[in-house]
Amino acid sequence: MAFLQLKEVEKTFFTYDSVTTAVEKINLTINKGEFISIIGPSGCGKTTLLSLISGLLHPTEGQILLDGKQIEKPTPETGYMLQQDYLFPWLTIEQNITLGLKTMGKTKSEEKELAYELLDTLGLSDKTKHYPSQLSGGMRQRVALVRMLSTDPKLLLLDEPFSALDYQTKLKLENLVFSTIRTHGKTAILVTHDIGEALAMSDRVILLTHRPGSIQQEFSVAHHLAEELPFNVRLDSQFTPLFQEVWKEMESLEKQT
C-alpha cells in the first residue's frame, strides 16, 4: 500500500546569480509502517528532500502524495526531528512536549495524555518542571522525540537526529527511537551520513548521487534484520557484508567527481 509517493520530484533553488538543482528525478514509494533511510555524500540534497516531504518546501517539478493527497504545507500529520533538539529554552519540558498540541489548539488534559505517557516510557517523567538547560544532550533529544510524537503524526522525518550526540548515547538512542517508532507503527524516513546507522535502523536504504541528487541505488535489509534492534543488527554476521556493499557503492560515487 503506497503511503507516500514521490513522482519525478525536482527541486531547484534560485538566487539572483545562480540556479542550483538540489534534487531531480526522484521516484520513490514508501509503504505504511516502513522505515527508510536516505544516505549520500554531503550536499546531495538529503535535507532538501525531507523539507519537500514535510511541506516546508515545494517541488519545482513533480508530485509528492501523502495518502494520495498532494502535500501543500506542513501539517501535524508529519513529524520532524532536527539535528539538534531545538527545544525552546524558555519553556519547561512539559511545555516543550505539548508545544505541538498547543499550536493545534489541543489543550485538554486527555489530549495531552499521549505526550505524558511517552515521556514516562522514555524515563523522563520526573523532569516535567525542568528547563532544557538542566538536561543532558541525550535527554534533550529524547524530549525532542516526545515532542515530535505528541501530535501522533503518521509520518516521521528524522534529519540526522543523532549526529550531534556522543557515540554511546547515539547507540542507545537509536535503539530507543527504533523501538518507539515500531511500537507505534509509524512510517519513518531517516536522513543520515552514517552507513551503519542507516542499515541498522531501516528496511530499505536509498543512496543518493552527488548534486543534483537522484537515486543511485536502493539496498534492502533482510527482513529478520530489519525487525531487530539497531544495536543487535550491528553485531549480526550479515551486517558487515552489507555495510561493505554500500560502502563500495558510495566510494564509486566519490570517484565519479
Binding site: 506542513p74 501535524p76 493545534m104
Partner: peptide, 17 residues
C-alpha cells in the same frame, strides 16, 4: 535560529503562532 520556526511550522503553526 530558523530551526525554532521550523519546529513551529512542522506542527502547522501560522505565521502569527
Amino acid at each position: 535560529d530558523d530551526n525554532y520556526v521550523k519546529v513551529m511550522k512542522s506542527f502547522g503553526a501560522t505565521k502569527r503562532q
